[in-house]
Design a protein around this nucleic acid. Structure first.
Lengths: 109, 109
DNA sequence: GCAATACTGAAGCCACAACTTCACCAATGG
DNA sequence: CCATTGGTGAAGTTGTGGCTTCAGTATTGC
């Protein structure tokens, strides 16, 4: 019933799996930054950072806005929701199954 | 202050970013399965599945036990906790920052 | 005991994605 | 108005990870 349910989870996972992109998300969670100030601490070129930002933006984890010549990037926390929901689904399916099993076994651990 | 804090999140994300491994996790969330029954629906060899399972086991998302010649694989839902915590941390850091901003601005959206 | 099943280990292939470089454009400021 | 800063686009390089094949071991059933 959600908008783009499954595909987005794949893209979010792929996006966050890269160490540079994960680092970008972590830095942005402390507040918005320009592309060049993001590039500083990371040991990669400005171009690479811009490429990462495009991926993060496409999967809804980051929002950017260009004012003058500066592009300001900020975290879109709503972007995490599909992933969080996916994890919850795994757990609830698993526990549902364990309940059925409980009809037969009544053991500890 | 957690056990293996940051490294494990990286490994969990890398593990789940692969479509085959994500599919394995999804199928296992409905209940334990053997390696060969996991391999069936996926269009890859048994060897490939075994390799994926090793990755999933190493990052704590799957537990396996070999009885006789059959290795039974089950989901370890606790394995998701570091990732869930990481997401929560991003959000709370971000919102903390928004609160400070509220001292200056009092706008809607 | 023999065949089939269920997996394991080593080794090699290959596509892709993360990077780079270079050339370029657009704002800003002294 | 020229230099600097901030970013974009295209094109090429390369390492790695996901896959395969093949050969082997161990368990199970007939």
């Amino acid at each position: 019933m959600t908008a783009t349910p499954e595909i987005s989870v794949d893209r979010i996972l792929r996006a966050l799996a890269d160490p540079s992109r994960k680092a970008i998300v972590e830095r942005l969670s402390r507040g918005p930054l320009s592309v060049s100030s993001l590039a500083g601490p990371l040991e990669i070129t400005l171009t690479a950072v811009a490429q990462h930002l495009q991926v993060l933006e496409e999967c809804g984890l980051v929002r950017t806005e260009k004012i003058g010549r500066v592009r300001t990037c900020s975290l879109e926390t709503k972007g995490f929701l599909p992933l969080e929901q996916w994890i919850r689904d795994r757990r609830s399916l698993w526990e549902m199954r364990l309940d059925q099993l409980g009809d037969f076994l009544a053991e500890d651990e």
